[in-house]
């Protein structure tokens, strides 16, 4: 039981990778369905709708990023794996913004991408603007990512 810290920290890493990944999968999935619909009508729009479909995919990557940083910090990827219980819990909490922010923002962004894909289908020349709407949603995933990164690096520096 002396390694509970490690367990909690790993939970955090797993949550951030899994939840953000699930969010991205849902987001990219619903956007992909809309994109296929557009391409059946107009195959020339493929590259544009593909870009829009991919936009909600970044949360999964951010989740992976947080998970990876946590893994390196707690020594799962090599090095010493001596994590106190407090520190482990702190890592877990540090991962939460990315886990939840990633999950919900990716789903919301996916829905937004669907609308943007509809916009491109009707007005292909408005691609630049269509891209911005889903990108607005992503801001909040980025803020979550930022807080998670800063917290993890901060926790690593603590001596408890």
């Amino acid at each position: 039981m002396e390694n509970m810290g490690l367990l909690f920290a790993l939970c955090g890493a797993a949550l951030s990778a899994a939840m953000a990944g699930v969010g991205s999968a849902i987001g990219v999935g619903i956007a992909g369905r809309a994109a296929s619909g557009v391409v059946t009508e107009d195959p020339n729009q493929f590259s544009k709708v593909l870009v829009l479909q991919l936009l909600p995919g970044t949360q999964g990557i951010y989740g992976l990023l947080i998970a990876f940083i946590t893994l390196t910090q707690i020594g799962i990827m090599g090095g010493s794996s001596d994590v106190s219980l407090t520190k482990g819990l702190l890592y877990l909490v540090a991962c939460l913004p990315m886990a939840f922010g990633g999950l919900f923002s990716a789903i919301a962004q996916g829905k937004c991408s669907v609308s943007a894909i509809g916009l491109v289908a009707k007005k292909p020349d408005q691609f630049g603007k269509a891209m911005i709407f889903p990108a607005m949603v992503e801001t909040y995933a980025i803020l979550s990512l930022l807080i998670s990164i800063l917290s993890i690096f901060g926790v690593a520096g603590l001596s408890i």
């Binding site: 970044t58 990557i61 951010y62 992976l64 990023l65 990876f68 940083i69 990827m77 801001t139 980025i142 803020l143 990512l145 930022l146 990164i149």
Partner: peptide, 23 residues
């Protein structure tokens, strides 16, 4: 101004994911 934090977030994302693959 806070929105420019994406410069850091995306910059880090590139580097960290590259590290993941290298490792």
């Amino acid at each position: 101004i806070l929105s420019y934090s994406r410069l850091l977030a995306l910059g880090l994302a590139t580097g960290v994911i590259a590290q993941v693959f290298n490792q």
